[in-house]
Design a protein around this nucleic acid. Structure first.
Length: 787
DNA sequence: ACTCGTAGCCTTTTT
DNA sequence: GGCTACGAGT
């Protein structure tokens, strides 16, 4: 009697589902039905009588875990299988065994913000100067070491290059600071757990026994710490099943190590390897492009992508004049397809290399009033108003937490300034107590001014009164916190100063309350506060992906594991994809290539790759060079379109109709392609030409040129980097002038500040009544009238 | 102690 | 084009 779970699977998939004992490596290409196999395999194990509590399934994102759970439940109904992220699993484990690694069991989990604050303190404590190494670099390096299980001590013992010397200097201070505050960062969750399993053999074997079947998703993206964790859980019961695709390894920068595949083969010599190469997702055209690209990776085992779908449309490769044109054309294509009823908005994804590249796309979507979701921007729990309140909760949960204390102590302002904080820090250091405790000492010692003492007392009062609420309902606690800090009126005060936006912040508070209420409803075990804080720290915004009917905009990284009928990948340009920071390292370039491979293989029916010949970058505009990856694609099978419409004046008309250039499609010839690639040198002629035009007095220009120039004057002045032109624009855009913005209409300049390329003006718009700041060098502003 | 203006940094990707 | 640390002014 064959299990129903095996029906509709190909032979390899069946074999994977039925292999439940012993080590197993599933090499699953994109679109090979991996999630299906994995969930069917779990269901099959349950069907074979494996108790659900013996199973452990580890994923990278909460979203992946949720997906797995819901699909498993559809097959077998609710089952108490532990499924979740590595970080979530580690947090839960550490909560139980914290003392064994020297942590308090009420440790707090820091997000990037808190960790950075902590690192800053550590840098101060180490008396380290940030002139040569940035805070971000330090954070990255420390994170990298932690993921490779290098402790501060081992790092110091090793021979150090000059750069690493800096890291070695700060790392111990950072770690001590974390421990002092009774906190861990993301990487610590993994590192402490790995150390714990290594150093406590009895516990290790107990857990090995408890989790007899361990499954790891996206194995190609695991780092050493994660391997050590998994390895220690699967020694006595070596039933370790991992799925992965080396071609989709895109987290090397985070310490992911493809060697983990060879470690697996070393530690489990009898590992069964099953290849899932049949692709059910994409058209043969798309797969051929993906394959043509990935063949160029040198450090790679040969692997196939076997198409199973019927032929479809050719992959499009499009050149645009500017990033703006790119955005406008893509949005126009989406609108056209949606209006014709052929597609829904949810069918489209626009993928970008870095978060910053989403901005133009976003603006264009807003202007066309197309609903969209942006993944990879700001996490909900990173918003200021949420973080402020969470800090109070963190401090409540763990009074040792000095980072939370420092955020909360003067938010909203209650007269505790730098001086006072310095005093309290000194006091805390002297008595070796937390900053919260130092507040009490300072009040007892009557060493502060009246006003300051009153502020401190108020702060302590909030803490003391909330402590009583900790074990009650979370909603009550958060509500009380907002009341006592008078946080709502603080928000109102903040926003009165800078105009609009207060609605969002207040709405976010409501959403926070809603989430608290939700957790109250489902809270089963332990402290709801703890569950909530863990949720706040480990929730990523990728997890908030919705299925509403809207266009999705996200980074290539965030797109992993997803699929869309139509995919646009923008800015496929040299120094963007591959990224500038990767180009000196051949291995890093290969990772960039894999990143593009991941993007391409997200597409089911249609795919468009594009680049722009000029692209705005920070304060200037740079020539865009087509990515070298584009040369590697089988272009004879693709549809190559040049929409970059050469312009006699070297700039874009602002008001153009989409169809004015949409009809201009031609084939590239090879020469143009390589020519563009060679034009790597700085300013291209058209940019300079544009600048010259703009220094002419407006009435000396022909009418039609003026019409086109209108709105671009300041940009050109800035591009020239010419002080005379900049000064001129400063004179023209002075307070009181009425100006026009292509998006917001007319308004009056009410304030101006800065000089040179940083010169900016505040404009009060007539139609909306809104005030906005613009940098003259960048904004598309034009003069409407004299005085 | 707080407020405002400014220069300088930044951004690659994420749990 | 945004954010923030720092400094001058209140």
């Amino acid at each position: 009697m064959e299990s129903a779970l095996l029906q509709g699977l190909n032979p390899n998939q069946r074999q994977a589902v039925q292999t439940i004992d012993g080590p197993l490596l599933m090499l699953a290409g994109p679109g090979s039905g991996k999630t299906r196999v994995v969930t069917h395999r779990l269901a099959y194990m349950l069907e074979q009588g494996v108790p659900p509590s013996r199973l452990l399934a580890l994923t990278f994102t909460n979203k992946a875990a949720q997906e797995m759970r819901s699909r498993l439940e559809r097959l077998v109904g609710p089952a108490p299988v532990w499924m979740g992220t590595f970080h979530g699993f580690c947090a839960r484990l550490l909560r139980q065994y914290a003392p064994l690694v020297g942590l308090p069991s009420n440790f707090n989990i820091y997000d990037v913000d808190d960790s950075t604050a902590c690192l800053r303190t550590a840098v101060e404590a180490a008396k380290f100067s940030l002139t040569h190494v940035s805070l971000g670099t330090l954070a990255n390096r420390i994170s990298y070491y932690k993921n490779r299980l290098v402790t501060p001590e081992t790092l110091q013992a090793e021979g150090l290059s000059s750069d690493e010397h800096a890291v070695a200097q700060v790392y111990p201070f950072y770690q001590r600071q974390l421990l002092n505050s009774g906190a861990v960062d993301f990487d610590d969750l993994l590192m402490h757990t790995a150390m714990l399993l290594r150093s406590a053999p009895e516990l290790r074997s107990e857990l090995d026994e408890r989790y007899q079947y361990v499954m790891v998703d996206e194995y190609q993206d695991t780092n050493l710490a994660q391997y050590v964790i998994v390895r220690h859980l699967a020694i006595d019961y070596p039933n370790l099943a991992v799925t992965g695709d080396p071609d989709q390894s895109i987290y090397g920068w985070r310490g992911a190590n493809l060697k983990n595949v060879s470690y697996l083969e070393r530690d489990y010599p009898n590992t069964q390897i099953i290849r899932l190469e049949q692709n059910y997702r994409s058209t043969p055209e798309i797969l051929s492009v993906a394959d043509g690209l990935i063949q160029n990776n040198q450090y790679r085992k040969h692997k196939r992508l076997v198409p199973s779908r019927a032929a479809g449309e050719p992959v499009r490769l499009v050149a645009y004049a500017t990033g703006r044109r790119e955005a406008e054309d893509i949005v126009a294509q989406i609108v056209a397809a949606a209006n014709s009823g052929k597609r829904q908005l949810r069918d489209f994804a626009i993928l970008v290399r870095t978060n910053a590249h989403s901005r133009l796309i976003e603006q264009t979507l807003v202007r066309q009033q197309i609903p969209y979701q942006l993944i990879g921007g700001f996490r909900f729990y990173m918003r200021k108003e949420i973080k402020d309140l969470v800090s109070y909760l963190l401090l409540l949960h763990n009074p040792q937490d000095d980072v939370a204390w420092e955020r909360a102590i003067n938010t909203p302002p209650r007269g505790i300034g730098k001086q006072t904080i310095a005093k309290l820090k000194a006091l805390a250091g002297q008595h070796r107590v937390s900053l919260l405790e130092a507040c009490r000492l300072a009040l007892q010692g009557a060493m502060l001014g009246k006003k300051i003492a009153a502020g401190l007392r108020q702060f302590l009062d909030i803490q003391d009164r909330c402590v009583e609420l900790v074990h009650g309902s979370l909603l009550d606690l958060v509500e009380a916190m907002i009341e006592m800090t008078d946080y709502r009126s603080y928000l109102l005060r903040c926003h009165q100063a800078d105009g609009a936006g207060d609605k969002d912040a207040l709405a976010n508070l409501d959403e926070l309350l809603a989430e608290a209420a939700e957790l109250d409803r489902q809270s089963l075990e332990a402290s709801p506060l703890e569950v909530f804080l863990e949720y706040a720290a480990l929730q990523s915004d990728t997890d908030r992906l919705s299925t509403n009917n809207c266009v999705t905009v996200m980074t290539l990284h965030a797109a992993k594991g997803l699929e869309f009928p139509v995919v646009f990948i923008i800015a496929v340009e040299e120094n963007i994809l591959p990224h500038q920071r990767s180009k000196d390292d051949p291995l890093a370039v290969e990772e960039e290539r894999r990143l593009l491979f991941v993007g391409i293989t997200r597409a089911q029916d249609q795919l468009q790759l594009s680049y722009a010949k000029r692209r705005a970058f920070r304060d200037s505009e740079t020539p865009g060079i087509p990515s070298s990856f584009l040369m590697e694609l089988p272009r004879s099978d693709m549809q190559c379109v040049d929409l970059s419409e050469p312009d006699p004046f070297g700039f874009d008309p602002i008001d153009h109709n989409d169809d004015a250039y949409a009809s201009l499609s031609g084939r590239w010839d090879e020469s143009e392609f390589s020519q563009l690639a060679e034009e790597t040198t700085a300013e291209d002629a058209s940019v300079l030409e544009e600048a010259e035009f703009c220094q002419l007095p407006a009435d000396e220009l022909p009418q039609q040129v003026i019409a086109k120039l209108k709105g671009r004057i300041t940009t050109a002045a800035q591009l020239a980097g010419d002080t005379a032109a900049v000064r001129q624009s400063e004179q023209v855009f002075r307070i009181g002038r009425v100006v026009t913005h292509p998006e917001y209409g007319s308004g009056r300049i009410i304030a101006a500040s800065g000089k040179g390329p940083k010169r900016s003006v505040t404009i009060d718009f007539f139609s909306s009544g809104e005030q906005r700041d613009f940098r003259l060098s960048h904004a598309r502003l034009s003069i409407e009238s004299d005085e």
